[in-house]
Design a protein around this nucleic acid. Structure first.
Lengths: 343, 343
DNA sequence: GACGGTTTTCGACGGGTTTCGACAGCGTTC
DNA sequence: GAACGCTGTCGAAACCCGTCGAAAACCGTC
C-alpha cells in the first residue's frame, strides 16, 4: 500500500505538504502542488481511511438506518436509500447501512466508536425508541419521518397530514360525500408509524370540516386481503363512492376487484392513492395520486446533515422540513355517479 | 471520548492489557479481566473504529454495491441488502452501501483506502465492467449473480438456468406444447443481466429438448405494457396455453388481462412465475412460482466472504455456488384445455 | 537459586492531520 | 545598507488511538 510518506519522498516534499495539497487547508505553490499531484497519480496513492478518521476524528461516513421489515413501501425505502447514498457521495461521504434489528444500541455503537459522524433514520414511529438516544448528547441526525414530538430533532418528511387533507378535498370537490380509506397493514398502525397516522389525521380532520363521512380500514397487502376489506366496506357503507388508498400493494387489487364487481373507475367509484408515481402510473387505470417524493426526501436529508456537519460550531438548525404534497389527477377520479330516484 | 488509555488507568493496568481483554488474543487472569470489564462498563468505553482499523489494518466493513437503477426486482434487492446487513452484523461486520453510480472506481476507492475489506456485488451483468478490477489484485469479493466467465471469482446465485428449465418441465409435464415467456424490460437484456439471460437459456434449451415451442418477449412493467405484449403474443401464437413470467410488475397485470379477455387461469391458460414468494402468493390467483431466495442469497454471500476473510493465508475458495431452484405449485397452473375438433 | 509457565508491561508501529516555527523573498524605514 | 516586518511556503514533530512483538515481572517448584 502506498502511504502519504512515500508520496512525499517521491515528490521531494514533506508529508505535511502532501497532506495540505490533499486537504487544501493552506496555500501551496502551484509548482509544488503539481509535483505532488503527479506523484499521487503515478504511485496511485489513496489515503488510508482509518488513519484519516483517526487523525481528523472525522470518518466521512453517514449511517443510514433502514427498517428491518421489508413488508411495506419497499420501493420507497430503497429509493430513499439510493438517493441518500448518491447524494452523500456527491458531498464526499459514504453511507453505512444499518438495519433496525440492533435497535437504538446500533446508534450508540456506530456513533460512539466514531464509525459514523451522523445518522439518518427511516421508518419513524410516533414515539420512536431511538429518539432518547438522539436527544441525549446524540450525534447529528436527520429523521426521514416525523415523531409526535419533534422538539430538538431534525426531520424531513412529506406533509402527510396535508396529503390526507388534499385527498379528501379533491374527492369532496368532485362531490363525494362518503369515502373509504384503505390503509396500511394493521401492524403499521399498531407500531404508530408516523406517516400512516398523520395521513389518517389529515383525512379525518378535513373530512370532518367538509362534512364528508370517512371510513378507515387497515389492510394487509395482497389480493385476498383487499377483497375481504372491500367486502366489509361495502357491507358497512354501501354508499361509498370513493376510495383513498395508502398501501402500495392494495392499489392494483382494488382496481381489479372493483372491475370484477362491476364498478367502473372512475364512473361508479373514484380511487386515489398516496403512493409512488410508478405504482400510480403502472396500474390498470392510471391512478390519481399524491406522490411520495422518495428521492427528494433522501437528498434533503443528506443535505441537511452535510450542512450541519460543515458548521464548525455544531449548532443545530433543528426543525421539521415538510415537503408540500402534490396531487396529480389521472384517470381514476371523477364525480360520483348521479343517484337515480330508485337507488 | 473515552480512550483505551483512560480505561487502563481506571483499571490500574496497561493499555495493552485492555486491548487483550477486548480481543482475547492472549490469556488474561480472571481477576484482571473482570476489573477491566468493569472499567469499560463504567466509563462507557467504545474502541475508536478508525484507530482500530489503522492498527489492525482491518476495517470490519464490507461494501455492498447495489444497482442504481431501482427499476427491477426492487423487493428482492432490498431483501438481499437487508439480509447482507444483518448477517454481516452477526459476524461483527458493518456494511457500506455503494450504488452503481460510481462504477468500478468505487470499488478501487473503498478498497484501496482500506475503508472496506471486501465487497459484495449485486446486479451482475454477463460481461460486467467491474470484474477486471476484481480479478486484478482485487479485494475479496462475492458476486450475487453470475457473469459469463466466473473464473477466479466467487459467486452465489440461484441457478436461473435450472429455474428456467424447471418452468418448462412443469408446463410440458402438464401437457403444454406452446409457451410464451414474458420477461424483464428490454433494457435488462440489453445490459446482459446475468439472471435474465440464464433463465432464458434454461427455458429455451429445455423447450428444445422437450419439443415445446417457446416465444420470449421482454416487457416493461405496468399494465399497459403487459397489455401490448400480450396482444402481440396471442397474435403471433394463438395457441399459447401457458405463460412463464419473469418480471415482478407483470404478474398481476397479466392475470388481470387474461381474466378480462375471458381466459380463465388455470383452466384456459396456465401462468407460472419466477419471482419472490410474496408476489406469487399475493396475486389475485396464487401463482405457481420458482421463488427467488433473496435472504438466502444475501446470507450466503456474507458467509462466504467472512469465511474467506477469516482464512489467514488469503486463499480463495473460488467457485460458483448455485442454489437449487424450487417450484411451488399453486393455483395458476394446470393442464391445457382440451381442444375440440373445431378449434 | 535456577527454572518453566503464566500474566502483564513497554514501546514501536500503523498512516494521516495539524500546530508551531523556520526560512525566503520583498518592501519599508532610518 | 542594515534592520525590520510581512507574507507566502514549507518542514519537523507532536498527536490521534489502538495493536502486537519482545521482554519483563511474577508465581510456584524442584
Amino acid at each position: 500500500m502506498v502511504t502519504l510518506a512515500e508520496v512525499a519522498r517521491h515528490a521531494g516534499v514533506s508529508a505535511s505538504t502532501v497532506s495540505y495539497v490533499l486537504s487544501g487547508r493552506r496555500p501551496i505553490s502551484d509548482a509544488t502542488r503539481e509535483r505532488v499531484r503527479a506523484s499521487i497519480e503515478q504511485l496511485g496513492y489513496q489515503p488510508h481511511a482509518g488513519a484519516r478518521a483517526l487523525a481528523s476524528s472525522r470518518s466521512r461516513i453517514i449511517a443510514l438506518m433502514v427498517p428491518l421489515r421489508t413488508d411495506m413501501y419497499v420501493p420507497v425505502m430503497l429509493e430513499i436509500a439510493v438517493a441518500v447514498a448518491t447524494t452523500a457521495r456527491a458531498h464526499g461521504y459514504d453511507v453505512l447501512l444499518l438495519t433496525g434489528e440492533e435497535g437504538p444500541s446500533a446508534l450508540r455503537r456506530v456513533t460512539g466508536s466514531g464509525l459514523a459522524e451522523a445518522v439518518i433514520l427511516m421508518d419513524i414511529h410516533l414515539d420512536d425508541e431511538r429518539l432518547p438516544v438522539l436527544r441525549a448528547a446524540g450525534p447529528p441526525a436527520v429523521l426521514v419521518g416525523t415523531p409526535s414530538d419533534p422538539t430538538g430533532l431534525n426531520c424531513v418528511d412529506l406533509d402527510f397530514t396535508a396529503a390526507g387533507a388534499l385527498c379528501v378535498e379533491h374527492l369532496a370537490g368532485l362531490g363525494h360525500r362518503e369515502i373509504a380509506v384503505i390503509g396500511e397493514a394493521p401492524g403499521v398502525y399498531a407500531r404508530h408509524t408516523g406517516f400512516a397516522e398523520r395521513t389518517l389525521r389529515g383525512l379525518r380532520d378535513r373530512a370532518a370540516e367538509l362534512g364528508v363521512r370517512l371510513l378507515h380500514r387497515p389492510c394487509e397487502g395482497g389480493h385476498d386481503a383487499v377483497a375481504g376489506v372491500l367486502a366489509r366496506i361495502f357491507d358497512e357503507r354501501p354508499d361509498v363512492s370513493a376510495f383513498v388508498v395508502q398501501n402500495e400493494t392494495a392499489v392494483e387489487p382494488l382496481l381489479a376487484l372493483l372491475r370484477r364487481t362491476g364498478r367502473a373507475v372512475p364512473e361508479d367509484v373514484s380511487v386515489i392513492a398516496v403512493c409512488p408515481d410508478q405504482i400510480a402510473t403502472q396500474a390498470s387505470v392510471a391512478v390519481s395520486s399524491v406522490a411520495i417524493p422518495a428521492q427528494e426526501l433522501g437528498r434533503r436529508a443528506v443535505e441537511r446533515l452535510v450542512a450541519r456537519l460543515a458548521r464548525p460550531d455544531g449548532t443545530d438548525a433543528e426543525g421539521v422540513e415538510l415537503l408540500v404534497p402534490e396531487l396529480t389527477v389521472r384517470d381514476s377520479s371523477g364525480p360520483p355517479p348521479r343517484r337515480g330516484p330508485g337507488d
